[in-house]
Design a protein around this nucleic acid. Structure first.
Lengths: 137, 137
DNA sequence: TTGGGTGCAAATTGTTTGCAATTGT
DNA sequence: ACAATTGCAAACAATTTGCACCCAA
């Protein structure tokens, strides 16, 4: 599906800001971005889009299911394209790197723990804060 | 250890706001509170403490290890006394209830997943969003 | 054409901070 | 007495919103 189609499917008109923001989310080495990140990247390449619009578009994308929003610590929200396969994140406290991972066993136990208490899982949020293992020296 | 001692041990002078905030965290049916919650409870019982002080005291408590701060979604930070035994949280999306739980298996796999990628866990944050199981009817 | 989209600046929300007055030790 | 603590109001940071203008369909 082209980006144009993706926007139309979401009931959104195809506009320059939306196309560019969608592209930035799709083709980037760092798929996790704050609104400010996106705003800065656009500005840097001479494309004038207001920060307010970036926020609005990201909110619309989120509502349309195109992207998801994470509230990792530290105030600012981080967006990424809705992953085709679920995953969680670990964040390196030394470098700030965000590493994606998934673990079926953890998911399984999450379900179990919820069920044991009379609930079913609607969603979850798991972030591991990690640091590099010290090699034996 | 009395509350007075607990404050002194943390290098904090024993003041009215600190004592009351510590009490609210210790003796309450809802151990998870926002700064606003605490401010409101104090005000309601006629005890004048400024919101700024509530924030400052909570920050000091956090630095002293007396309480921990969660950044669940929805902007506002939630504080709770530092748990003696680690636990995570599930939040009922229908009622807003916060349920504590712990699961050794999940912790084990978290360690494993991190190690597999060359990291060790410094901390983690896991919140399950749940809803009540429908009973068969 | 026309209702949705955008920029801009002002408004909100949650939290922090400077400073003068106050208080624990 | 003296440094720590507090209240108040102003400062902040991230995000949202009102409104006049603009543009994709």
């Amino acid at each position: 599906m082209t980006e144009d189609e993706e926007l139309k499917k979401a009931g959104l008109k195809v506009t320059f800001p939306r196309l560019r923001i969608l592209e930035l989310l799709e083709y980037s080495d760092q798929p996790h971005k704050t609104a400010e990140d996106i705003y800065r990247e656009l500005t840097k390449s001479g494309e004038e889009v207001s920060l307010a619009t970036v926020y609005r578009v990201l909110t619309q994308f989120e509502q349309a299911g195109i992207c998801i929003r994470h509230n990792f610590e530290e105030g600012r929200a981080v967006y990424e394209l809705t992953p085709s396969t679920h995953h969680d994140h670990m964040i390196c406290v030394e470098t700030g790197d965000i590493i994606e991972f998934s673990c079926d066993e953890i998911e399984k136990y999450q379900d179990k723990v919820a069920k044991d208490r009379g609930y079913e899982i609607v969603d979850h949020n798991m972030v591991l804060y990690v640091k590099p293992l010290k090699k034996k020296k």
